[in-house]
């Protein structure tokens, strides 16, 4: 797809908002950029009030950099820490009432398809574990069962960090928190399993201590959601406040948790593999040559 339409019509530059001009002239709008280039271009995400050293902030930052076409992307969020940063980005952000985000995204995706036809407009939901696995659980699962074509990203900090440390469905069993002094009584919810059962075409778990991997899974999820079906990414984004992780040890914690219980996993349907290989040149999903298969 050509990105020429992002360029300004000569003479009209001055009428565009400065934030938009910055994104076109110094940012990623209309260009292909990667995480390895950060620091050399103006990022979409701007200043935000999230806590110092927050892993969720890092993940959001990397995710926004990884959007394949940020100029054609709309984010949807809900109450929780994440929206404090997601809303401070130079892409449209829709705030769904608590738990509504996947319902809002469903309508938005359908409306954009009616309005823009085959011009892809990516809708990306980013919400916390509470908004997605507890309060928004029904709407999240229903959007997957309905095969709504957008990406759902869970910012899984395993706690209601914004309201003082209550347990969520994604908190680990026996975990003691400020507002769960006796420890959680049941297991962490298997949202990955439910995403697969509900028919998501691409499901991945990721931890932000590997920026290029974050970039890779976000790109795949957004691209697959354009044509194939719903996609789900579950990201471990620790809450250093509620879990008392010193800010300079946040990445050390991420590394430990990734090794211990949040290993990278990726599930992709054959249809999605074929789509990524044929349309976007993903070589790892190209059919293996017959000779190589026979040699095994």
């Amino acid at each position: 797809m050509s990105l020429d339409y992002v360029k300004f019509t000569p003479g009209f530059e001055k009428f565009m908002p400065k934030e938009y001009r910055d994104m076109v002239e110094h940012g990623p709008f209309g260009k292909k950029i990667s995480v390895s280039q950060v620091g050399t271009f103006k990022e979409i995400l701007e200043e935000h009030p999230m806590c110092a050293g927050c892993a969720m902030t890092l993940f959001i930052r990397l995710a926004v950099v990884a959007f394949p076409n940020p100029e054609d992307t709309i984010t949807v969020g809900t109450a929780g820490c994440g929206r404090l940063a997601i809303s401070q980005a130079a892409v449209p952000f829709v705030y769904g009432n608590y738990g509504d985000q996947n319902g809002v995204a469903s309508g938005l995706t359908r409306g954009l398809r009616l309005r823009f036809g085959d011009q892809p407009k990516d809708v990306v939901v980013m919400a916390g574990d509470g908004g997605m696995a507890d309060i928004g659980f029904a709407q999240t699962l229903h959007s997957w069962f309905r095969k709504e074509k957008f990406t759902t990203i869970m910012l899984d900090n395993e706690v209601y960090g914004n309201t003082g440390g209550q347990e969520s469905g994604m908190t680990n069993k026996n975990q003691v928190l400020k507002m769960a002094p006796l420890g959680k009584k049941f297991e962490k919810m298997d949202m990955l399993g439910m995403a697969k059962v509900a028919g998501c075409a691409y499901v991945a778990t990721v931890v932000p201590n590997n920026p290029r991997r974050v970039e890779s899974v976000i790109k795949k999820a957004v691209l697959v959601a354009r044509e194939i079906g719903p996609t789900y990414i579950q990201a471990y984004t620790s809450c250093n406040i509620e879990y008392a992780i010193p800010t300079d040890k946040v990445m050390e914690d991420a590394k430990t948790v990734e090794t211990d219980r949040y290993k990278f996993s990726e599930y992709i349907t054959d249809e999605a593999k074929d789509y990524l290989a044929q349309l976007y040149g993903y070589k790892e999903y190209l059919p293996k040559p017959v000779a190589a298969v026979e040699g095994k």
Binding site: V35, S36, V38, G39, T40, K42, E43, I44, L45, E46, E47, M50, A52, G53, C54, A55, T57, L58, R61, L62, V64, P211, M251
Partner: peptide
């Protein structure tokens, strides 16, 4: 290595001058 530019939680904060 440019690792710090990729790991800072704040956007547009650790920048890189070639």
């Amino acid at each position: 290595c440019k690792l710090c530019t990729q790991y800072c939680p704040e956007a547009n904060t650790i920048l890189y001058d070639n």
